[in-house]
Simulated scan of single mutants.
Amino acid sequence: MKSVRLHGYHQRPVLDEIAEPVVKNPFDVVVRVGGAGVCRTDLHIIEGQWAAAMGVALPYTLGHENAGWVHEVGAAVSNVAVGDTVILHPTPTCGLCRACRSGNDMHCESSSFPGLDSDGGMAEYLLTSARACVKLDPATQPKDVAALADAGITAYHAVRKAIPLLYPGTSCVVIGAGGLGHIGIQCLAALTATRIVVVDRNPDALALASQLGAHETVVADGKHVEAVLDLTGGAEVVLDFVAEEGAEADGFAMTARAGSYFVIGYGGAVHIPTLDIISTERNIIGNIVGTYTELAELMELAQAGKVTLHTKAYPLAAAAEALDDLAAGRVRGRAILVP
């Protein structure tokens, strides 16, 4: 099968021909990939930022946002069958550890992360587990929802945690209206009554944000922190989908006293005097990918038309072009590889 493989850090991935995966264990599922999202994390992987954390042996197949059709199942699989349309939680889990049993399965002690620590879904077929499969309406096109598997539930997870803080009369600032941010805006609009203020340096991204439910938009032009403070007086919640290149300092500055700054994007560093934290009782909250249950909830919103992905499709052979477009800011919403 054709597969987008990373052979070396700081090198472009290439399209290789490799063997198709096969079922070996009772709960294994092989999925024929219908769409694989292209994520900023893929850029960070290529840059080597995940090398020490994951310890993966090169070459391997990229792609951690995947949806498609069940191609083969193990002997113990009962929740999906060959031919079913599925979206895949990015971390197949054990179901037995304390994190899994308490519903925090993204912190599973024995999880894998296809696309980061093993072969991912930028390929024609992907090996995963029954526990990762969320069955979808057969009318759903995998390429239209694939990026919800990571970008979607990462944004949804943050919004879900923030809901108790976003009662009517509050403000929520969204930094970054790209692949994650444009989903977060829709989740906020669907699940809360908060005033949504979106900050981005790209006017096209802000135009999309307005269409998706933003009440106010602010261009990140160097004066945006003051502009946001003028609009909100400080936001009860800031969702930072960028968290690099200075956005992390801006986000904390935009947060109101006793407010919460949610770090969702990554790549930068938070440098805040401890006095500034304790004297204002501002909270800094980290966010990783959401749970299996949150992916199922998000898919209900998506299939009801309340959350939609804005995508640009590329053939598998154009993976390098898609990554270049993402790095250069030419993708509005999410790039999707379609085998």
Rank of each mutant, 00 (worst) to 15 (best):
V4W: 03
Y9D: 10
H10A: 11
R12F: 04
R12N: 14
E20C: 01
K24Q: 14
V29Y: 01
R32M: 05
R32A: 12
G35Y: 05
L43N: 08
A52K: 07
A57M: 10
L58A: 10
Y60S: 10
N66S: 13
N66M: 07
A67C: 03
G74V: 03
A75D: 15
A75C: 05
D84H: 11
M106S: 15
H107Y: 10
C108P: 02
D117F: 02
S118L: 02
D119W: 03
M122C: 07
A123P: 11
K135F: 14
D137C: 06
Q141M: 09
Q141E: 15
P142R: 03
L148T: 02
A149G: 07
Y156M: 13
H157D: 07
A158S: 15
A158I: 00
I163P: 01
L165K: 12
G179A: 09
H182D: 05
H182M: 07
I183A: 11
I185K: 06
Q186F: 10
C187Y: 03
V199D: 03
N202P: 00
D204K: 13
V218E: 13
G234A: 08
V237I: 09
L239Q: 04
A243Q: 05
A243K: 04
E248H: 08
A256I: 04
G259I: 10
F262W: 09
F262C: 12
I264S: 03
Y266C: 07
V270E: 14
P273V: 05
L275M: 15
D276R: 10
I278P: 06
S279Q: 14
S279K: 13
E281W: 09
I284F: 12
I288F: 05
V289K: 09
T293M: 03
E294Q: 15
E300L: 08
L301W: 07
G305P: 04
K306S: 05
K312L: 09
A317P: 05
A319Q: 11
A320Y: 07
L326Q: 04
A328I: 08
R330K: 15
G333L: 12
